[in-house]
Design a protein around this nucleic acid. Structure first.
Lengths: 132, 132
DNA sequence: CTGTATCCTTCACGATACTG
DNA sequence: CAGTATCGTGAAGGATACAG
């Protein structure tokens, strides 16, 4: 899996504080951001909070809404509300959001294809910690 | 940029706590992990700590050594020491490390190619925060 | 069902100073 | 030059209970 030549912008200042890659990683830094984007993408169309919550083991109601709010502010996710009792709420990716999902999908794909490698990394870690 | 069909392992349990993608993201969670891997890769061959430190704005000596130790334990980075005064130390990616660099490079590449999109995300965020 | 408000704990990170 | 030790802080995340 060899990589194509790097674009110019990449060569210029790949290490600066505010460079694009660092900003991207910062954006994905939160524990649930990528999970939620990825799930919204996989479920497709509009998703209700309950479904989202059930789809992501370990995710709490609080962290879900908090993360969704952040994604909303970034313009990656839209929230639709239909007043009723009980209320009906749906979340969906915006156009911008669908584009930002690309790198997330890359990561998920790569991770799934190289699970064995991650096993080795974990095994190395466990052995090293034990040797102390 | 359309994506190929998903591999089976990816379909099976993409949401579980211990699934490969989540482990990958967890591995990259540290603030400096990806930066250091990426830099070791770009510099190529063996790198001295000083050079590394100078290449990554904002990185402190402490966080550098700490992160390098972690990467060593994972088997991604090797440390060569030549006893002398002053001592000569070099870090290089292992075979495993060179493979694990792939997803990092993907992120950097994508980030660089879509800097404008990241600008929009940041602008959205700034506007939303200001509107409060 | 969806969302908010508190409280509390943890730990990742940074600043600083010191050793060989 | 490389590395360690120590202390302090903020922010992220989890548990719980409540509200519309």
């Amino acid at each position: 899996m060899s990589l194509a030549p790097l674009p110019d912008a990449y060569r210029q200042a790949p290490f600066d504080e505010g460079c694009a890659p660092r900003r991207l990683l910062r954006l994905f830094g939160g524990k649930w951001v990528t999970m939620i984007l990825h799930t919204l993408h996989l479920l497709g169309g509009a998703s209700r909070p309950g479904a989202l919550l059930r789809s992501i083991p370990g995710l709490s109601k609080k962290m879900m809404t908090q993360t969704l709010r952040d994604l909303e502010e970034m313009g990656l996710v839209a929230r639709d509300v239909r007043q009723a009792m009980p209320p009906v709420v749906e979340y969906r990716l915006t156009v911008l959001g669908r584009k930002m999902v690309e790198p997330v999908e890359m990561l998920y794909r790569w991770g799934a294809e190289h699970a064995a490698m991650l096993d080795r990394v974990d095994a190395n870690l466990a052995r090293a910690r034990k040797a102390e």
